[in-house]
Amino acid sequence: MTGISIRSANIDDAQMIADFHVKVWRHTYQDLAPTEAYAVLNEQHRGKQWKEKLSANDNSQIVLIAEIDGRTVGIGAAGGSSESIFDGRGEIKFLYVDPDFKRRGIGRALLAQLAIHLRKMHYQAAALSVVKGNEPAMAFYEALNGRPAGEYIDPGPVWRSQNIVFVWDDVASLIS
């Protein structure tokens, strides 16, 4: 895709990322998430989370922002595994693309950069989780040769969603 740039996020991006995260999250999960999750997982809540994530001194984690003409059109994050079901694979923790910019290569570009980071951190394989029922995301990961490798319930305090784990046994397959 022409015109896309991807950069590392910093603490000054925290609230912008939170606002973007909430916007895309609400669009994506409008028919899947319970209404109480919408009330709690707002811009203020996400802002606090992203400030904590971006201020942590953890070189194993990366947060990326995809932009077109200065407009945020995607975010992604990766690092060490947060759940045992990932079986020691590097984890793609977040991948969100603005619905108005889908099918333009932004998700693929972010995934490739996240995979490069995971490889630098010596992960040979990658994994992520998708909320059950998020068919567009599952189709996207399957098109990139991700394979389902199990299910778990997210322990989140607000919405204990049922998730499907997708894996790539060779993280390099996401870099192209």
Rank of each mutant, 00 (worst) to 15 (best):
D69T: 09
D69G: 06
G70K: 03
R71M: 12
R71C: 09
R71Y: 05
R71G: 05
T72E: 06
T72S: 10
V73Y: 09
V73G: 11
G74R: 01
G74F: 01
G74H: 06
G74K: 04
G74E: 04
I75G: 03
I75H: 01
I75P: 02
I75F: 09
I75Q: 06
G76W: 09
A77Y: 06
A77M: 08
G79E: 04
G80L: 12
G80A: 15
G80D: 14
G80R: 14
S82A: 11
E83C: 02
S84A: 15
S84T: 07
I85H: 02
I85W: 01
D87T: 10
G88Y: 11
G88S: 08
G88D: 13
R89H: 05
R89L: 03
G90T: 00
K93W: 06
K93S: 06
F94N: 08
F94I: 14
L95T: 04
L95V: 14
Y96E: 12
V97H: 00
V97S: 01
D98P: 12
P99L: 01
P99N: 04
D100A: 12
D100K: 07
F101E: 10
K102V: 15
K102L: 11
K102F: 01
K102N: 05
R103G: 03
R104I: 01
R104M: 09
R104H: 07
R104T: 03
I106V: 14
I106T: 02
G107I: 01
R108P: 02
A109Y: 03
L110S: 12
L110R: 11
L111I: 12
L111N: 09
L111M: 15
A112D: 14
A112F: 04
A112Y: 07
Q113N: 15
Q113A: 11
Q113V: 06
L114E: 15
A115H: 11
A115Y: 08
A115E: 03
I116V: 15
I116R: 15
I116C: 14
I116H: 13
I116W: 13
H117A: 08
H117F: 05
H117V: 00
L118F: 13
R119A: 01
R119L: 11
R119P: 00
M121C: 07
M121P: 04
H122I: 06
H122L: 13
H122Y: 12
H122S: 14
H122F: 13
H122D: 10
H122T: 14
Y123I: 07
Y123G: 00
Y123W: 10
Q124P: 00
Q124D: 11
Q124M: 10
A125E: 09
A127L: 08
A127G: 03
S129W: 03
V130E: 07
V130W: 06
V131A: 13
V131C: 09
V131Q: 10
V131T: 15
K132P: 00
K132D: 10
K132C: 09
G133P: 09
G133Y: 01
G133D: 10
N134E: 02
E135R: 10
E135P: 00
E135W: 04
P136E: 03
P136H: 01
A137C: 04
A137D: 05
